[in-house]
Design a protein around this nucleic acid. Structure first.
Lengths: 180, 180
DNA sequence: AATGACATGTAAAGAGTTACATGATTCA
DNA sequence: TGAATCATGTAACTCTTTACATGTCATT
């Protein structure tokens, strides 16, 4: 949640914006960086305006539903810098949900384990390709930085998985019938 | 949530166990692999017993509060294999919350950004040391696998952050007064 | 006598998502 | 004319955590 409001405040540090605009930006450019959903963004912007971190003003264009444009206040700026510092100094490596499966890898016959992991590998390679493509289209140094970061981890994941699968094959070749 | 029940079922595949025991095992050996909390484990075991994936029987010892020992059923085993396959073939790279900060790195003077990131780096090195120590004490190949996995990502993180900080210094040395 | 390990559980709150509802405009 | 885009919002739900409540047993 801290990251969510840091993110929103960060956007508003650059320029005022309305909810739809922000959500659109996320969906088009930052799906890799944040998974915040539309409803969350709207609610958070509302919440931040109630607590004085941002102000709202409505802009009407023609007969369309009015846009609620949010602007950051000085209190919001302070909060932004505080959250930013916190975020930068924190080192929270995520938990890898895929490791749960690896924990019980030996419950599956080697062939099947291997087959499933190869699917995982293919997905990973896919994601890498997507990112390699995406990294081209970004001028923003911040976005480029985080995409490169993600690519590094993805590449590590690909290499590591490849090794794991190889080991699985080797083990299986040695004792093809001995796994329970 | 899928990972949570996969994890619990996996534990019960090896041997029947009660909630306290499982939670204890997590806290002592698997804090890196899962962040499931006590209340969640208890509730999930309850829930799985209601849906027939596990059975319960109470064991009383002396006058102590009775232990509810859960055992996996054949329906539970099927569910386990199904969840395991799903988990193995899925490639869900997590979202790195720390990247949100990097997105806005240029809002802080280079020195401060650098100082904060060095704190992050120190934490990461700490975690690496802890894991290097932990990896010794595990016979279970599954646990060892996931700890090694984590160590690789940690090491990558350390190397990468080091480079980022260096670049920050270089940029700052070139244009010491020109950042807004 | 007190602390910590053993053992269970629940109530309330928090965070976030899904799915829906509404309606105008633009473009094919 | 129908679909996609623009623009907002909310109600219900799921998942999970925090904090509390309860009591025994062993150790210091």
């Amino acid at each position: 949640m801290d990251e969510r409001s840091l993110f929103l405040l960060g956007i508003l540090m650059v320029q005022s914006a309305h909810g739809y605009q922000i959500n659109d930006f996320i969906e088009k450019n930052l799906i890799q960086v944040t998974d915040m959903k539309k409803a969350t963004a709207y609610a958070l912007l509302e919440r931040m305006s109630r607590s004085g971190l941002v102000t709202v003003h409505s802009e009407q264009e023609g007969n369309r539903p009015p846009r609620k444009v949010y602007s950051i206040t000085s209190a919001g700026q302070e909060q932004f810098y505080s959250l930013l510092r916190q975020n930068l100094m924190r080192a929270d490596l995520p938990i890898y949900r895929g490791d749960i499966g690896l924990l019980f890898l030996d419950h599956l016959p080697g062939q099947e384990a291997s087959a499933n992991l190869q699917l995982r590998l293919a997905h990973l390679r896919n994601q890498l390709d997507v990112l390699r493509n995406a990294v081209q289209h970004h001028r923003s140094p911040g976005i480029a930085l985080s995409i490169e970061h993600r690519m590094l981890h993805l590449q590590l994941e690909v290499d590591w998985l490849t090794r794991v699968i190889e080991q699985l094959r080797d083990t299986d070749a040695q004792t093809p019938d001995e796994r329970s």
